[in-house]
């Protein structure tokens, strides 16, 4: 009996968090459909389509910090997240060009896709010519 109550309470709490989380992200970012970063002055390949919410739902990612991570001195800070920041704020230093940023994006996406055996890994799978072209 006791345990059933506990389970129900936990579920309710989770649902509430999920709701808040969804509302918060919608307010913060609007509908995200592509990968954009002001750090890329010039795009050499077609833009990457990325349905943020659909992706996270399908991938069952509920912790923002999985992607929006925060590193300090080379160590990941648990419990902190970088939602609202552009990746280039950290991954684009003055002395190494956009390749560094490209690397960060590729590693973020591909590493996970390969781990999960799901999602695109080849160049053309993300940089599809059906998307907005290079500029």
């Amino acid at each position: 009996m006791q345990s059933r109550h506990k389970t129900a309470a936990r579920l309710a709490r989770l649902a509430l968090i999920a709701l808040l989380f969804t509302v918060a992200t919608v307010f913060a970012q609007g509908d995200i459909t592509t990968v954009e970063d002001s750090g890329f002055e010039k795009r050499t390949r077609p833009v990457v389509a990325f349905e943020h919410d659909a992706h996270n739902q399908k991938a069952e990612i509920y912790d923002c910090a999985v992607c929006h991570h925060v590193y300090e001195n080379g160590e990941k800070r648990e419990g902190q997240m970088s939602v609202g920041m552009e990746c280039s704020e950290c991954h684009l230093s003055e002395n190494s060009g956009p390749m560094e940023l490209t690397r960060a994006y590729h590693r973020m996406c591909k590493t996970c896709h390969l781990e999960k055996n799901a999602g695109p890994v080849q160049c053309a799978q993300c940089h599809s010519r059906q998307n907005a072209p290079a500029k």
Binding site: C123, A124, S128
Partner: peptide
């Protein structure tokens, strides 16, 4: 082939 994303480009990529 894979660069131009023609039919079967994923196989071509591999």
């Amino acid at each position: 082939w894979t660069y131009h994303q023609w039919y079967g480009y994923e196989t071509a990529g591999i």
